[in-house]
């Protein structure tokens, strides 16, 4: 615990799996029922170790807590359509790995609001689907499928690279012409034509 000032200004040090520490406000941290049960009454000497989760994940989770500090009291899960723009951005900017880490951390820290929003989001992926479609969603691709997918992606990347190289080559060829200003281009063509005409008339 860093500062013993008024409870809203109290900052706590959080330690991540990398051993890094960072500050989180008491108000944000109090949204975690796990924290409330473990540290609120007895306090914490030094950083609070949440070493099962990395710094990026913890920061993301507490970013949400900091944001929702001033929101009204939590009254059950909101429908996804009722989420604010900030909430939607918060979820949309996460990739799948980060999203899973955030659910795990939020589940461990018992942050009711964040956990239920994350779960509602996953439920949306399953909603209205039949068994076959659900199997596609919940079944992770096997190692072979991943390998095949990777090969296809590599092929695509190689093909795209070839196309890009060809385009660069053609661009280089035309570059000399394109670089000339229009007037210069007209002049050179005129010179060529005059030379041709002169050689023709000499003959």
């Amino acid at each position: 615990m860093t500062s013993p000032a008024s409870s809203s200004e109290v900052k706590y040090l959080i330690e991540s799996s990398e051993g890094n520490t960072f500050d989180v406000s008491g108000a944000a941290l109090r949204q975690s029922n796990t924290f409330n049960a473990m540290f609120l009454n007895i306090g914490a000497d030094g950083p609070i170790p949440f070493t099962d989760y990395n710094e990026a994940t913890l920061k993301k989770v507490f970013e949400y807590c900091e944001h929702s500090v001033n929101e009204e009291n939590y009254s059950g899960p909101k429908h996804q359509d009722d989420l604010s723009k900030w909430d939607l951005n918060f979820f949309n900017e996460m990739d799948q790995k980060m999203f899973i880490d955030v659910i795990n951390a939020s589940n461990f820290l018992d942050i009711e609001r964040l956990t239920s929003y994350c779960c509602e989001r996953i439920a949306r992926m399953l909603r209205g689907k039949n068994t076959q479609e659900m199997i596609k969603v919940i079944t992770l691709p096997t190692a072979e499928e991943l390998e095949a997918k990777q090969k296809v992606e590599e092929k695509k990347a190689a093909a795209a690279k070839k196309v890009a190289e060809k385009a660069a080559e053609t661009a280089e060829k035309t570059e000399t012409l394109e670089e000339l200003p229009v007037q210069q281009l007209v002049q050179t063509t005129r010179n060529k034509l005059t030379r041709k005409y002169l050689s023709f008339s000499n003959e």
Partner: peptide, 11 residues
């Protein structure tokens, strides 16, 4: 696809 079955039980 999403690793639904690998999530914690409460989730």
């Amino acid at each position: 696809s999403f690793p639904f079955l690998k999530l914690p039980f409460l989730a």
